[in-house]
Design a protein around this nucleic acid. Structure first.
Lengths: 337, 337
DNA sequence: GTTAGCACTCGCCACGCCTAAGTGCTAACC
DNA sequence: GGTTAGCACTTAGGCGTGGCGAGTGCTAAC
């Protein structure tokens, strides 16, 4: 029993099953792929694969389907990344080029990716840590309520309402604004906390209170937005493939809606040297996603924010991985300096 | 055959069907509701109701279910708005009070409303027309690219990247900023176009070009955000009630994701004097929502932005309407002056 | 206008049957 | 030893049958 052929058999099973959604038997296998051996031999191989836990039979007299472990082996060692079609490349380029705003870019990206893969696409907002403060604005909404707006040089705008703790006049606020802006302009966001301390220290005692409140607000602004938000598209694709999620489309939707879950999941995915990380079925901790796989990768300057796709474990990994990788690259290029 | 009793029968049918999801027959009806007549009489009434197109029988020997028209009559003339439970009132109050940001408020609102009704909740962003300009900021991202930020006195922040058409220096931009801010501060957003014209007119010829570009950008900023965006929550509830959308949960998700469709739908709903508008099944033009109903109402100062709920035609209208109305009221109060 | 009674219509479910697909095993073969 | 042919065995799923059960419409009496 040759080891290479066993892998070849696993590959064939995965591909056929992904294609037909039906358990694949030994006979169909030798017919569709020219493996050069008879179905009996394949049966032996399949028995071995089953012993190793790579495939399983839903019932005695059905063909085999890959297990999570089988998909894992397939993804890690067998499959080759399928190149995108020129049409797809063009679509990516065209769709992403005419956009200005960051929100806009991300929005187009998820839509594109979900169309490309026929699955649910997810994009995490890029981190701000590398960005620098471009501008700060305080606006007095009510005597004690200040709207703080932070504009980063990446074009990202963050806002938040802050309780100043005491009543402020427009003049005081304006003075504070100048103070903050003077010290903070150009500061990288990850260094913001320290710099804020020095601003407060430089304030006359009378201004300390509100300055501290504002500083806290700004700090929250810079850190809160880090990994907190994401955009999503293509949930309708879940329903189309309701054959894949027999009755469990509900939990999947829940997980997607509870953005925290998805964000955790994305963040936890270790960066794969080959560029795209895959989490298959029960490999991920959330029960609702037991029958789902996530294909994701980082993008942007330090590749910390993630873009990815969620679909049934029975998905076309090579193509999906190719699409995710391609989209991430274009995305990085567009957002890049 | 008494007219009032016929309505009573329709009411009973709607309520039972909503409760049990199963066609309701004449016998079950007299048992569950004390109508004071026999099942034979009810059968006669039901035949009449069917002639009028208010109810229908899925097949010969099944009970009846309401038609869209039947629901319509029920909503318009029969049902009484069910008051919310004290617990629900408390939940609304508690959840909405601890919030600061507009985004935050809307986000909590949809989540709350979807939990309250076990359906998909939708909130349209409030219009800006009544809001006034509080602050304007221009930030130079690249020699020709300007990030315009518009802060309204409602605390809403809008941003957009503008192509200035020619290279600008920080000084020129700063001068323009002062010019714009001087004239625009306090201007209601719906009057923005006219005011912008006067700003441009007041510019020295050398500044006209960029000023015009910026003005166009600001105008787009003020109008674009009007009815364009919405927040949504509770799509997972669609799946839970997959009994209601037999196989058609896909189209519903599509409609929800194509925000344009939902926004059109919401905007098109005429304001009902009783406060809550209902669109039932095929009353709405989009095919994917043929089995869905929307319950919505306006909120905010001029009640032009909408908040609502989408669910199966077979929904508990009285409670849903009550929830929508209550949430809209709290929302108006919080956003109010 | 209401009611009782009755014949009739279907959807649904359970039962049993059969077929097709696929397996595992054994014995022969190279 | 690995490969193959053959065969007995298993089982899901499709299909027709028949028996409820729920519900209706109609008629005749009240």
């Amino acid at each position: 029993m040759s080891e290479p052929r066993k892998l070849e058999v696993l590959r064939a099973i995965v591909e056929d099953y992904v294609h037909s959604r039906e358990p694949v038997g030994s006979k169909a296998l030798v017919e569709r792929h020219h493996l050069g051996v008879s179905s009996a031999t394949i049966r032996n191989d399949m028995a071995a694969l089953e012993d190793e836990g790579l495939i399983t039979a839903p019932h005695t007299s059905a063909g085999r389907i890959p297990t999570d472990k089988g998909y894992r082996l397939f993804v890690d060692q067998i499959s080759a990344v399928k190149p995108l079609s020129p049409a797809e490349r063009r679509a990516i380029q065209a769709l992403l080029e005419g956009s200005d705003d960051l929100d806009d870019v991300l929005d187009r990206t998820v839509r594109l990716l979900s169309q490309l893969t026929n699955q649910v696409a997810v994009v995490q907002y890029p981190h701000l840590s590398r960005a620098k403060v471009r501008h700060i604005e305080f606006v007095l909404l009510a005597p004690r309520k200040v709207l703080a707006v932070l504009i980063a040089d990446t074009g990202k705008v963050e806002q938040r309402v802050i309780d100043a703790g005491q009543e402020l006049s427009d003049e005081v606020l304006s003075e504070l604004r100048t103070r903050f802006l003077g010290s903070l302009s150009g500061t990288p966001l990850n260094l913001l906390p320290q710099t804020l301390q020095s601003v407060i220290a430089g304030c006359p005692p009378a201004r300390r209170g509100p300055a501290q409140a504002l500083a806290r607000g700004l700090e929250a602004l810079a850190t809160s937005s880090r990994e907190e938000r994401m955009v999503m598209a293509g949930t309708a694709n879940l329903a189309r493939s309701n054959v894949d999620f027999p009755l469990s489309i509900g939990p999947v939707l829940e997980a997607l809606e509870e953005q925290v879950v998805m964000l955790r999941l994305l963040s936890d995915m270790a960066e794969d040297p080959r560029g795209v990380t895959v989490s298959i079925g029960r490999e991920n901790p959330y029960d609702g996603l037991a029958e789902a796989s996530v294909v994701a990768t980082g993008y942007g300057p330090d590749a910390t924010a993630k873009v990815g796709v969620l679909g049934p474990t029975r998905m076309d990994y090579p193509t999906t991985m190719a699409a995710v990788r391609a989209v991430a690259r274009y995305l990085s290029r567009i957002l890049g300096p």
